[in-house]
Every structure is written in C-alpha cells, then in structure tokens.
C-alpha cells in the first residue's frame, strides 16, 4: 500500500491550503468546500470519505483545477498551480489525472476503446507516428487487463468493470504522478469491485502513483488508504492514518459514521450511534460547528465558535472543540 522508506521524511506531492469553493445559487452562496487543508505524500493514498453533498467530489475537481477554486492554494511539487496560466496548466495536466465514478457516463459512446485511450496522447501530441501511438494504446490495454480483441469495440458492448478499466487506461496514458479516483468502484458489483481495487493497487506499485481516493464506502476507503480525511458539509472534520482513525475515531461524526456501517460478520457487535436528522443545507451555513445540530456531545460554545482542524496526536487532526474530552450534551 505505502511506498514508505524507513527513516526518510516522506516527500509531499500535493498540499492544499485554505481551499475554498463557493457556488452562487439562487438561494445564496453554497459553501461546497470551505477552508480545507490537507497534504498527500508521494506514493500514498489519501482516502476522502463523507456522505452526499459533503464536498468530496468538488474537492477532487478543484484540486485538478477542473473547477476553479474560490480561494486558497493548491501546491503540487512545491508550486502553487493556481498561479499557472492556460499553457502551463495544460502541461501540468499530464501529471494529474482523474478516474470518474460512472463508467457509463464518462466514456464517449461514439468512440472506440482505442480512440478513447489514444485521445489524451493525440491532444498532448505525445507521438508523431500513429503506429507508435497504437503500440502505446495496446500496451495500456494490456496493463489494465483489457483483451486486444476489444481494441475497436465501443463502450456499450462492455460491462461496467471493463468500462472502468478503459477509464483507468485513459488516466494512465500520459504517465501521471497523481490520480484522483472519484468513486471509481461505486457503480460496480462487489466481485468486479474487488478486481478493480486490486488492479489499482498493482498500478500504484508499478508506476509509483499517488492517489486521492474519494468514496462514500468506508470499508473500501479503509482498504485502499494510507491516511483518511472525513468530510462533513464542506469541512474536513478528521484526518488521520487509517489505523488510528478506525481504532480510535475522535470526531463525533466519524464515530457515528463508523458505527453505522453494516458489518458482514456475526461475531461483531458494535454499539450503533444513530444520528438524528439529516445533513443541513450547505447554503449560507451558520457560524459554529456544522455538526452541531446532530451531535450528541454539543456544548453551548459549539454553536458560535467554528472548530479548527487541530493536531491532537502525531499526524492526527480533528476539528472538534472537545476531541478527546467528549461530554454528553446538556442542551
């Protein structure tokens, strides 16, 4: 999983500082991503989890500048890529790619598999010679486990697992360093999901890739990630390595989220925390902790003072005033 070298300080590939993305809507300003900070080391996988509307996909897109951030810095290999102009950004895109959730919607139905995979190579003028390009396409297809006979097939002829392999081959075409995986296995059945997860693990080792893995499925995120960021309503509420997070979740939301997963075993009995109510609207969110309304441990100052993400242990960050010292709510 982790390409770590003992004794060496891990090298940071990406760092995000005070990242904000607001959308103007008729009802007001939607705070999709609100002051988010995290970093990803070279060769590791950062899992980003949260429920619908928490801002995880938006974060993935803003990091790649597929959406322009409202504010903040995106530092990739030491440089703030938000300062890059169009040409610089286009060169940059070779380094950072994305795999989308829905392999049915993210592939052009009128292009054959070889056309889809060669498109990034054509756009970036990687090969002068068509024969070289086709050689690379065949190589990519074999890397992701697509049979050569499918070279001229169209997406509708294939099942979800194979389509997702095309999406992965396309992302790998330009030999990127960093790939945002936006719910890459959510649309797949479990047996196929496991095949794709194994493939992504192999590719990460083979090509020394760094992943940002976005998912709502905590079991999957735990399986693939070195570190995990939990998001709630546009904020990162907890960030820790997967072991620490699963053994000792600190934020009340993380605790509830982990307890809510149905576990496919009979020998495990966990005390389930049932959260009341729904996620509130991200439009014009009030001051204070965004989890206030659903929290079992809320105190009076949680309503007014926004908790910052602070370090509570080695590389463990929690955005809760009472982390490690939770007391039942009196209100």
């Amino acid at each position: 999983m982790m390409g770590e070298v003992k004794g060496l300080q891990p090298e940071r590939l990406l760092e995000v500082k005070n990242l904000k993305k607001y959308f103007n809507t008729k009802k007001g300003l939607l705070h999709a991503v609100d002051d988010v900070n995290f970093f990803i080391n070279k060769g590791e996988t950062l899992g980003v989890v949260g429920e619908s509307g928490c801002g995880k996909s938006t974060t993935g897109r803003v990091v790649l500048r597929l959406l322009e951030a409202t504010d903040g810095e995106i530092i990739f290999e030491g440089k703030n890529i938000r300062d890059y102009n169009k040409t610089e950004m286009r060169n940059m895109r070779k380094e950072m790619q994305i795999v989308f959730q829905d392999p049915f919607a993210s592939l052009n139905p009128r292009m054959s598999i070889s056309e889809i995979i060669s498109e990034p190579l054509i756009v970036n003028k990687v090969y002068k010679d068509k024969a070289d390009r086709m050689k690379r396409v065949r190589e990519l297809m074999s890397t992701v486990g697509l049979a050569e006979r499918l070279t001229y097939a169209y997406p509708h002829e294939l099942d979800g697992g194979r389509r997702q392999r095309i999406g992965i081959a396309r992302a790998l075409a330009l030999k990127p360093k960093f790939i945002v995986q936006d719910e890459p296995v959510s649309a797949l059945d479990v047996s196929i999901q496991a095949q794709i997860l194994n493939l992504m693990d192999d590719l990460q080792k083979e090509f020394d890739l760094t992943y940002m893995f976005i998912s709502h499925d905590l079991s999957v995120v735990k399986h693939v990630s070195d570190r995990i960021a939990v998001m709630y309503l546009g904020k990162v509420v907890e960030l820790a390595d997967y072991n620490t997070m699963f053994k000792n979740p600190q934020h009340p939301y993380t605790q509830a989220l982990l307890s809510a997963i149905p576990v496919p075993r009979l020998d495990v009995h966990r005390d389930r925390i049932i959260l009341e109510g729904d996620v509130p609207s991200p439009i014009n969110p009030p001051e204070g902790c965004r989890f206030y309304g659903r929290c079992r441990y809320r105190q009076s100052n949680c309503l007014n003072v926004t908790p910052e993400l602070k370090e509570v242990g080695p590389e463990t960050f929690v955005a809760c005033h009472y982390a490690g010292n939770l007391k039942p709510a009196i209100i």
Binding site: A194, H223, R265
Partner: peptide
C-alpha cells in the same frame, strides 16, 4: 472474499 473487511487488515482482496 471480495468485500474489504472493516474489522481486519487484508492487504489484497481475493475476488471471483
């Protein structure tokens, strides 16, 4: 074997 197990650490899944 295809489901990532949240209660233990499995390095690699063993899918069908």
């Amino acid at each position: 074997n295809s489901i990532p197990d949240i209660e233990s650490d499995v390095e690699r899944l063993n899918p069908i």
